[in-house]
Design a protein around this nucleic acid. Structure first.
Lengths: 241, 241
DNA sequence: ATATTAATGTACGAACTAGTTAGTTTGGTC
DNA sequence: GACCAAACTAACTAGTTCGTACATTAATAT
C-alpha cells in the first residue's frame, strides 16, 4: 500500500475529528476532503504538497530547496508536484501566495473600527508582532523572495491585491486619530505601515545573526514581551502629537 | 596570455594611479600589490576572488551562488578558490567577515563623543541609514546568512567581536542623554540598537516585495530622504522624555 | 459494461555542480 | 643554472538535481 493510500485510510476510518489534528501541517492538512470516499483526492494531494513545500522553501531558501526532498516528505510522488504546479518556480509562487493570503485573511477579521485610534494602533501593531513571531515560515519566505528580487511575486496578481487592504485600515485609524487631535498631521500611511513592518519583521528575520552577536535568545517569552512593548511604544510615540 | 597575466600587466604598466579606479571592485581591487614585479600576486588574487564572490553571494544567495560562475568572473581559476578558501563555505565566511569589517571600521571613525546626545543619535542613525542604503550587498549577505540560521557567522569569532563596539558607543550617548535629563530612563541599549537596525535594514532588505506591493520606488532620492527623516524622528521620539 | 478523462507511480536522463587530480609556471635562493 | 616552494591551470569525477517519458489506476459519463 502506498503512503498516500495509507493517509486516505487514516482519514476515512476512525473518529470523524481526527486525533492527529495537532500534527504538523506537513503530515496532514486540515482541509476537508472535497469528495469523501474517493480514492483519488486531488485537493488533499495539492494541500499536502504545499504544506511540505512551504517548510522546505522557508527552511532552505529557493535554490537550497530540493524538489526531490519535498516529494519524499509528501504522501505522494514528485510527479504530482509537476502535475499540479508545473515546475519548481510555480510551486514556490503558490507557496508564497498562500502564505500572504493567510496573514491578510486573519488581519481582515481584526475589526479595529470600533476601537479608539490609539487602541486600534496598539491592537494592529500587537497583532502584526505576534503573527510574525509565531509564523517564522512566512517571514522567511518573504526574505527568500526579496533575495530573488521579487520575481515570483511579480508573477502573482493575487498577492498584490491582498496587501492593499492593510493600508486602508491604517488610513482609517490614522484619520480618526488626526481629527481627534491625537495624532500629528502629515504622516504618510505607507510610511507608517513600513515602520510597523520593519519593527516587527526584523525581530524574526534577523534572529540568527542578531542573537549570535549580542547573545540574546530572541525567542524567549520575556524577551519577546519586552520587545513587543518597545515596538508598540515606538509606533505610538511616532504618531502622537 | 592568461587573463591574470593581462591584469598584472595592466597594473604594472601605465600611470601609477590607475585610471580604472572607478571600475567595479570585482574587476580590480584597490589593495596595493604586496610584492611588486612578481608574476604571482597572491593578495591580488585573493582580493579579486573575494570581490567577485561578494557580488555573487549577495545576488544569488548561498545556495544559488555557483563556484564555477565566481571562478569564471575572476581573473584566476576555480582551483584558486579552493586553494585560498578551502571550500564554498570557507569562501562565504570570509566574504561575510569582510563585509562586517567594512561597516564597523567606518562606524568607528564617526567620533560622536563630542556631539550633544540628540545630535549624536541623529548622526549615528543617519550614518546607519545611509551606509545600509548604499551598501545593498552587505544587507543581502546578512539576509542570506539569516536564511541559513547563522551557521557561518557562528564559525567566525572575528565578526562577533567587531559588533560589540556599537553597543558601547550607543550606551555612552544614551547615558549622557539621560544625565542631561533629555532621554527617558530604563531603555536597554541593545533594544535601542535593534530598533535602529530594524528601521534602516528593512528599507533595503524588503525593497523588492514592498515596492512591488505598494508601487513605490524605494531607491528614489526623494523617497529615501523622506524615509531617512522618518527613521531618525522615530528613534528620537522613542528616546525623548 | 465501456469509453474517456483525471490522477498517479516508476524509472530514467541530460545538465549541472562542488570539489579534486595531476601537473605546470614563476621568482627567488644557493 | 639547478632546485624549491608557492602560485597557478586544465581537465576530470562523482554525485546531484530538475524535469520527463511512459505506463497504470481510479472516477465519471454514456
Amino acid at each position: 500500500m502506498s503512503a498516500k493510500a495509507k493517509l486516505r485510510r487514516e482519514m476515512s476510518a476512525g473518529s470523524p475529528s481526527s486525533s492527529s489534528l495537532g500534527d504538523s501541517l506537513a503530515r496532514q492538512v486540515g482541509s476537508k476532503r472535497t469528495t469523501p470516499g474517493r480514492g483519488h483526492d486531488p485537493e488533499l494531494t495539492r494541500q499536502n504538497i504545499l504544506a511540505v513545500a512551504t517548510k522546505e522553501f522557508a527552511e532552505k531558501g529557493y535554490s537550497g530547496a530540493r524538489v526531490d526532498e519535498i516529494a519524499a516528505r509528501t504522501n505522494t510522488s514528485k510527479r504530482m508536484i509537476y502535475y499540479y504546479f508545473g515546475d519548481k518556480e510555480g510551486l514556490f509562487v503558490t507557496v508564497l501566495e498562500e502564505a500572504y493570503r493567510r496573514i491578510r485573511q486573519i488581519e481582515a477579521t481584526l475589526d479595529l473600527a470600533h476601537l479608539e485610534p490609539e487602541d486600534a494602533i496598539r491592537a494592529l501593531v500587537g497583532f502584526t508582532f505576534d503573527y510574525q513571531n509565531s509564523n517564522e515560515d512566512f517571514i522567511r519566505l518573504v526574505m527568500v523572495e526579496n533575495i530573488h528580487q521579487g520575481v515570483h511575486l511579480a508573477r502573482s496578481r493575487a498577492i498584490q491585491d491582498l496587501n492593499v487592504s492593510v493600508i486602508h485600515t491604517l488610513r482609517d485609524i490614522y484619520d480618526r486619530g488626526v481629527s481627534q487631535d491625537l495624532f500629528r498631521k502629515g504622516i504618510d500611511e505607507i510610511d507608517l505601515h513600513m515602520t510597523i513592518s520593519a519593527l516587527c519583521f526584523f525581530n524574526v528575520s534577523n534572529r540568527a545573526t542578531f542573537s549570535q552577536i549580542f547573545k540574546r535568545d530572541m525567542t524567549a517569552p520575556e524577551m519577546l514581551a519586552k520587545r513587543r512593548e518597545t515596538v508598540i511604544e515606538t509606533v505610538i510615540r511616532y504618531l502622537k502629537k
